[in-house]
Design a protein around this nucleic acid. Structure first.
Lengths: 344, 344
DNA sequence: GGAACTTATTAAACCTCTTTAAAAAGTTTA
DNA sequence: TAAACTTTTTAAAGAGGTTTAATAAGTTCC
């Protein structure tokens, strides 16, 4: 735990990881470009690139045009070298995606719901079929609507039988590949963060008024906030009025089907929440689901919030596609696993 | 920015830093103990220890009792090898501390206030005298009641003339040693975190109802939360009742002198804030100033908070000495600078 | 009290990445 | 078209940390 960052043993994987990330980020590169970017000498880079090309992890796309000297070899990462499987479980279905290292979707679909009793065996069989079809799959990222602690489902309302279940361990044993499990909101905020190509470690909050009551995914300084009892983001409980918290202010006792936010009392409740977020965390952006708000609603929230907080400190309010961000976040997590693998 | 963590050049300072931290943490150690703890081979450790002993940075305290073999040399860090200066500026005075690497205070005192016009030149002269008296001082940590961005005073209410002033740059030029500048609440939360010997990266919130209105220092995942416009922790603005935010709920319009919290309406306002913190961040601990609350008040807040939030998710509420934590936090920041120095 | 066993330190061989130099491959200019 | 100049790649030398072996220093047992 106190270990020095990169000792000799981990050096190889550190470099490998660096090359992969850099190459994916900038699309293609030459030895020198990578050397500059990573601060590693070009002979070392050269050696690694040679090996990676042999393994099929890289593609030699050709030679650069010369600017007065020998032409440089230009490499691209082979996106098909490894694939990933991302899936998230919901009440009635399981959405999955097979994606490559560029984030391109090879196949997308729905399959068995797994959260109910006995759901896992059905799902496992479906995944087995997928694995046969795509033998290059080498990571799994799973999203669940509950609290997760290192792959174990810590708390998941409504599905008692899988509470305390070690989902990560289960699938790792089953398919012998690295698995990551994440909470839905956390994955979504991660996905948005990645999608927006946000430079560096801004704070984000993803707000979602789901069926099971509202929740928020919070990202601060580039890391997801989990909370000491995995309770962070349970904004239902924020006291807002003399005798109402956020949940009751939204009038959500009576499980309505309607999604869109429209009413004045909703606007005010959300604006107060935005104000609370700002006064406490002061995030760069708050993300809403685009099936719940539109631009005009956002504008109203923005105006209303500024009655509570100096406008110049208010976060940017945006609408985004929740499911897409969710899947994207899972893909990011899966990709991380793939890029970290020794693969040797 | 994308550089691989520890390349050869930084290796030396990484190891040096690791040895220093480990040695200060565990008090004393032998070559093998350090090697185990840091994951670095003992010949390397041995070489470094030899050099550090020559430099006077280490003290050979003697030989371990043998457990059947050659007796091992036991080293201790020499706390006087480097000293640090920590100071914080307030309206009417500047508190300072000279401390060694064990955190032991060599001298403590008050000196010129620096926040008013022309205060800096007086303070600078006083510091010069201190530096002559303690030539081993090799870092400075400065606390200010305002927002700080990388040593620059970003926003400081009431002292317009030093707004946007590069305090870090000024003192670094003046005394040619590393300087760190930090906001008061952030330093305090850091100090408490360090003082409590908290294992790992819990979330903490330091709540303070200062003269200039309440504020909070927030630490999440081991890092201080600054906010996108350096507005985080400005909890005055949290909407709490139909028509009152936290500041107004405390009845603080009329700048009262009284400090202690007693009234029922205060308890409720604070409890609602605790509930908001919990629902959003879910911190491990919330720290209050011990001149504002006592155990019975904390108990009342705790009970009241649990009317808003399930009690098992509520943070631990504690009282602590603000000035002491503040200074301690500054010391931690200064110490960090000292331990990172190449010193070669 | 010496033989056998433990453990810490020192020394030597080794591996890996970096630095520096040389070679290879292109482009431009006389 | 050959000489001069650029730039990349390959090769060799160098530096720093690790691994392995050898040595030094203690302890225990007969």
């Amino acid at each position: 735990m106190d270990e020095v960052g990169a000792k000799a043993k981990t050096m190889k994987s550190t470099i490998l990881h660096g090359i992969r990330v850099a190459l994916l980020e900038i699309g293609s590169a030459t030895t020198v470009e990578l050397s500059d970017k990573l601060g590693i000498s070009f002979p070392t880079i050269s050696k690694f690139l040679g090996q990676m090309e042999k393994d099929g992890e890289l593609i030699l796309t050709g030679l650069d045009h010369s600017s007065g000297g020998r032409r440089a070899k230009r490499y691209t990462y082979n996106p098909e070298y490894k694939l990933g499987l991302a899936l998230f479980m919901e009440e009635n279905e399981t959405n999955y995606v097979i994606f490559n290292c560029f984030g391109e979707v090879k196949e997308q679909g729905k399959t068995e719901p797994a959260l109910m009793d006995d759901g896992f065996s059905l799902l496992t069989k479906d995944i087995e079929k997928l694995m046969e079809k795509y033998p290059h799959v080498s990571s799994m990222a799973i999203g669940v609507p509950g609290s997760v602690d290192n792959g174990r489902i810590f708390f998941i309302p409504g599905y008692k039988h899988i509470q305390d279940f070690d989902l990560k361990g289960y699938f790792e044993d089953q398919f012998s590949l690295p698995v990551v499990v994440e909470n839905d909101m956390n994955a979504a905020v991660l996905g948005y963060h990645h999608n927006g190509k946000i430079k560096h470690n801004h704070s984000l909050i993803y707000l979602y008024s789901g069926q099971n009551g509202p929740g928020a995914g919070i990202m601060i300084n580039g890391g997801v906030v989990r909370g000491s009892t995995f309770f962070s983001g349970e904004v239902s409980f924020v006291p807002q009025y003399d005798d109402r918290n956020f949940l009751r202010a939204l009038g959500k006792g009576k499980k309505t089907d309607k999604k869109a936010i429209r009413e004045e009392y909703e606007i005010d409740a959300i604006s107060r929440l935005v104000a609370s977020f700002t006064a406490i965390i002061n995030p760069k952006t708050i993300i809403f689901c685009n099936d719940e708000v539109d631009e005009s609603i956002l504008a109203r929230i923005s105006v209303r919030s500024s009655t509570y907080i100096p406008a110049n400190h208010l976060p940017e309010l945006v609408a985004s596609d929740w499911k897409q961000d969710y899947l994207c976040g899972l893909q990011v997590l899966g990709l991380k696993l793939m890029l970290a693998e020794e693969s040797n």
